[in-house]
Write a protein that binds this DNA or RNA. Structure first.
Lengths: 166, 166
DNA sequence: ATGTACATGTAATGGGTTACATGATTCT
DNA sequence: AGAATCATGTAACCCATTACATGTACAT
């Protein structure tokens, strides 16, 4: 369901676009929120056209198909935003390693947390470059805040590990 | 893969346990880190036994099967912790709604963010009750910090929305 | 006896990733 | 001529959820 919503949202925000365009947008502006490759996007657009949420225009150069959101698509997007309580459920490999840290001896645990921190900082650098237009700015702020919080956690945890039996 | 790791981690932390036990542990101590129901856990334990990562003991009362981690299971768990760089990828419905907020008019946007805040606060209350033993305490700290950050974001965002064209 | 907690499973479906496959256009 | 980018698709597989299905033990 959420893939549909993300696609409708992009079409609504940037206007008519091809599957190829949408895949790029996913990669560049939506990647900290949702991920989808072209292999997932193309078939989904076909289904959405069948369901009347988007219009597939006639083929352009190189077989390009430009999709446009329909009024029904816009309605369903709006309805989802207003009615759907987002699930707070998270599946997080970083948190899983955090959970399992006590299984390791001190030096291994430190190495693991250092690596986590490096990964988070790399991602923070990436996100900081990606300045959103008006669109996506709320989500970007949220993403940055969460990364900073996670990095803060790595620092506290490293201090804690180094304190214990230093 | 991560389901395997989570199961090995639990078996390593709490000792031999049945699928039923593990499903409860998932629900009670691991739910902010990873989720899995019994329908996913039971078949996975069978496969893990086939792969030599756990030993399935003989059946006890009520068909209960008690699984024990093997040395090979412990080795793979340790290896994963040390070698596997956790993916930082997130799929987050809250962030998706955040991304799409600019599609809504001011009052709808405020209602959406209020609902998000209520959901986050409910979850925070749940997590705060769930005090971890030594085990899981690092992950719990991380989870709490992230929830507080998200709640902070809802407050900033509400202030921002109310300021604009108040 | 009725309900609750214990305990295990299967099947259908949906969502997502990886690998495979093809062809057009543009740039150097 | 060769490489990069544009552009679309399919198939196999893995992971996860929901619904279905069964039976035991214990407490009231």
């Amino acid at each position: 369901m959420s893939l549909r919503i993300a696609l409708l949202g992009l079409l609504s925000a940037v206007g008519p676009a091809s599957g190829y365009d949408l895949a790029k947008k996913f990669d560049r502006s939506l990647n900290h929120v949702w991920q989808a490759g072209h292999t997932q996007i193309y078939p989904e657009l076909v289904k959405m056209a069948a369901d009347g949420l988007v219009d597939a225009g006639s083929e352009g150069a190189r077989g390009r198909k430009t999709y446009t959101i329909t009024p029904e698509g816009a309605r369903q997007l709006h309805e989802w935003m207003l009615e759907h309580t987002p699930s707070v459920v998270v599946r997080n490999e970083v948190a899983l390693q955090a959970f399992l840290l006590p299984l390791l001896d001190r030096d291994d645990a430190i190495a693991v947390v250092e690596r986590i921190r490096a990964g988070l900082e790399a991602r923070l650098a990436t996100l900081q470059c990606q300045q959103a237009g008006a669109f996506g700015s709320y989500a970007l702020k949220l993403g940055l805040a969460q990364l900073r919080t996670s990095i803060g956690w790595t620092e506290e945890t490293l201090a804690d590990l180094r304190r214990a039996a230093g």
